[in-house]
Nucleic acid binder design. Structure first.
Lengths: 339, 339
DNA sequence: TGACTATTGTAGATCGATCTACATTTTTCA
DNA sequence: TGAAAAATGTAGATCGATCTACAATAGTCA
């Protein structure tokens, strides 16, 4: 009582009824007369009472879905979060976000913290942790993994057809006459991870071969930040014999490449064509006008939310949902320059 | 037991000790022999036991600080979240994020949901809700409000000196010879809110007057998204007599203005100079090279975290921390064109 | 040895909700 | 009217941790 948080007992005392009666009102349960409801609701309003989630969680499900994401830089994560929010907004589930920074290949602390808080399902973008860890986690708690290709009998997956997406990019560039197409890949994950970037790289190699461009295969691997990709691109340009086109593993990275090209005094697309991946917000800005492969992050988030809810309620077996990529042509790509 | 989550009793049974003994090991409390610790830890590992936060919260503080932010679009929010994470990373407090979308002027559901979860303090970016609501909330739970200027005896504030920031922008443009400087303000909040945008607008007016440019005062108000600011800028340009310089209330908005200028075939800075606010990631990209006012969002987040922790532990009275803005000159501003 | 202290462990109350089982009152209708 | 059914309310167990109070055991030293 007094200065600390009011409890259900305080409300009961104020309304002159039992704790059970208040609980019934809170839960909209059977057996409450209009008069009692009235009295209780007034007491609740007077005291500013709100039930403690922790106490509820002792007896009932939390109606909460947890989302674990790497620290929130990067437009693509924001797209996914938006989608999850949308997907849950109309239903009874709330969303709780646990950002994490210290993911290792052995464990994901963001997911563990959500497990501690008894969320009913977890949606996760976890690029580093090994698939076997995710798998054992998912045996305890319904889990939807976004943007990883590892197969699993235990967790749902929402993933883009990155192989097809890479093919779209390569075919587009090849159709413009490019042969020397370098792929800047962010495939930096360790063992036990089948990342989208690994699949994009495989898709790139496959498409290049299919188009008879084996001789021009060229992959540079670097981190996915703008700065790292900028550095990697600069190094590539400093080597003799630079490519006429870049297929970069993300928009974020592509912006870094554009920075490096600009600093090298090269024009886009006149000297070098650039294709990104994700179709993030800035790609469409006229200052970038970046040709890119859309994977529809918001839709992926929305689907992840739906799968999570489904899995809590009824479905037993794991499912996979694949988003179909589309090429968005803009002005960062053009015909190869004839010598 | 069996298939559901293991409890402390399961661990106790497996280790052949009492529940209290396990609890001691968990809390690193006094009175545990090395042998007992060994046995208990082994049982914990075997069962994959992790204590339920909800059960703990019934008896002890949660050691959690909640962060409530509008849905996560916008680089500036991401900067703040990063800062909060950094600020808490070394201490005992964890961070929980509650994104919200349906903030009204009467209440902020994200903050309420954190209160339900018994976080020990709340850090919030809440542009819409009235100050009086924040004030009454803060009387129940330590609260740090980021990016609002409303005075309060109950919550801490972390805020930029927006008046000075606006002056920096105006002075910079005036020094380049601009007179017809229009301010695109995102000051769209209702009553009971003293937003940074309101203060920037006031700062703009004050600086213009101080510089003898009263006659050129011109403010256009629009939402803060890129799209809305783009539309507002386009409308402004369609009116006759367009300004030679724009001071936009945010980088996000400034990117929208750049889009509109580009679509109108106007060059920056040759035809129109543009200044943003926030110094977000993309402002430094050569494709934008946006002159802007830095307010150091990451530092603000870090300070907010420190204030929150301080307030939980010891401090009783509310404090204000003011970040000093700095002008970052880039290539989106230049001398006014002589006719 | 025996008294005192330190160490190691446990029993059981407690936190604030939910919810079953049951008691009491009111309504229905033969 | 009176018995059955429906409506309304409460008592008290319960969830899984923490933590106080205390018991049992081991160690110390006059």
């Amino acid at each position: 009582m007094s200065s600390s948080r009011p409890t259900i007992s305080d409300v009961a005392a104020a309304a002159g009824v039992s704790r059970a009666a208040v609980s019934k009102v809170l839960r909209d349960a059977y057996g409450v007369s209009p008069q009692m409801r009235e009295r209780v609701e007034q007491a609740i309003a007077e005291l500013g009472y709100r039930p403690r989630e922790a106490a509820r969680a002792m007896r009932t499900a939390t109606r909460t879905i947890g989302v674990a994401v790497p620290l929130l830089r990067g437009q693509f994560f924001a797209d996914i979060l938006d989608g999850v929010y949308e997907g849950l907004d109309t239903g009874p589930y709330r969303m709780l976000v646990s950002p994490f920074d210290h993911e290792t290949s052995e464990r994901n602390p963001g997911m563990e913290s959500l497990w501690d808080r008894e969320v009913e399902a977890v949606i996760v973008v976890s690029p580093k942790v090994r698939a076997s860890w995710l798998d054992s986690f998912a045996q305890r708690l319904p889990t939807v993994v976004v943007a990883r290709h590892d197969a699993s009998d235990h967790y749902d997956r929402v993933v883009n057809d990155d192989r097809a997406g890479a093919a779209l990019a390569v075919e587009h560039l090849a159709a413009l006459g490019h042969r020397r197409i370098t792929h800047l890949s962010h495939n930096v994950s360790g063992p036990g991870v089948l990342s989208p970037h690994a699949v994009r790289e495989a898709g790139y190699r496959e498409a290049m071969r299919r188009l008879g461009l084996d001789a021009y295969l060229s992959v540079v691997t670097c981190g996915g930040s703008e700065a790292e990709t900028c550095r990697a691109t600069a190094a590539l340009l400093d080597r003799g014999d630079p490519p006429t086109a870049l297929f970069v593993g993300s928009d974020q990275g592509a912006f870094g490449s554009l920075r490096a090209l600009s600093e090298h005094g090269l024009r886009v697309p006149d000297d070098v064509s650039v294709v990104g991946y994700d179709d993030t917000q800035f790609a469409s800005h006229p200052r970038f006008s970046l040709t890119t492969v859309a994977q529809y992050g918001t839709a992926m988030g929305r689907v992840a939310a739906e799968l999570a809810v489904e899995r809590i309620k009824v479905r037993k077996e794991a499912r996979e949902w694949v988003s179909q990529p589309a090429l968005i042509e803009r002005e960062s790509t053009g015909p190869v320059r004839l010598l």
